[in-house]
Amino acid sequence: MSTQPPQQETDESTAETSAEPETESTSPGQQKRAAQKRERANASAQRQAEADAKAKADEETREIKVFRYDPEVEEKQEPRFDTFHVPFTKGMTVLDAVMYARDHYDPSLTFRHSCRQAICGSDAFFVNGRQRLGCKTQVSELDEPIRIEPLPHQDVVKDLVVDMDHFYEEMESVDPYFDPDETPGNDLEEQRQSRANREKVKMSTRCIWCAACFSSCNIAAGDNQYLGPAALNKAYRFAMDEREGESRKQERLETIEQEHGVWRCQTQFSCTNVCPKDIPLTEHIQELKREAVKKNLKFW
């Protein structure tokens, strides 16, 4: 059974014939087109239901339920879930599955992705109730139907695309770049780091800015100004880098110990649980808390 609503204007065949499905879906006001579209939609829904039934009967498929929402298309202003049956192949990831659905069933299905190898951080989704990186999550490990939603606690722009501006603002606010007190006179001189120090910051350098942690954090959801796990981890990465020097470290600690900094963390471990790069976020935040206390309590 296909749960594709009849209004769905696209499917495999229209995707091939229509040169610009994007423009079509963004100008629903044009009446003639709309009427044509409805006619076509009925036929296409029929075809799609058949293709769907066939795919289901023919080969091993997986059922995915994808969150759909588009404020610019009247029929999609009310959020809903669309069901797709995608042929399963060994090693298939959640990203592969939604890409298949987009390429074969509905080109208007919108989501971000780029590297497909857990490097760019574009495709964090809320999959079966958990923030996961689409390209790093095996379909075979998930219960069916697989529910794929945009990241919670972020505004949805369209389908699986969320507004990342606020997350990026928090990241930028901790000065996420190497900024030593003193640079070598000769610009080309290397600024070496000890192996031990590199080891200390190693995990914290792995962040790919996917916002999975930020989305999982109950505190970040309630306090819009809270820096959040990713930004605090960035601060940790540089505060702990011995090459930056003591005075820069003090400045960094001042940033993270302000009202909406580390002390908001309630050690729920949600961020640590979801981070696709396995960064021990809570551990880093806790260490920053202790550093902040040490900085302010100077009895020795």
Binding site: P71, P79, P152, V156, T267, Q268, F269
Partner: peptide
Amino acid sequence: MSQSYNRGLIEDFGRWREFSAGMWAWI
């Protein structure tokens, strides 16, 4: 630009079934 959609409470305590150990401990 386009307005965005806020999914409200469904994201929070409505999802208690999905909470992990640390979250339950906190509650």
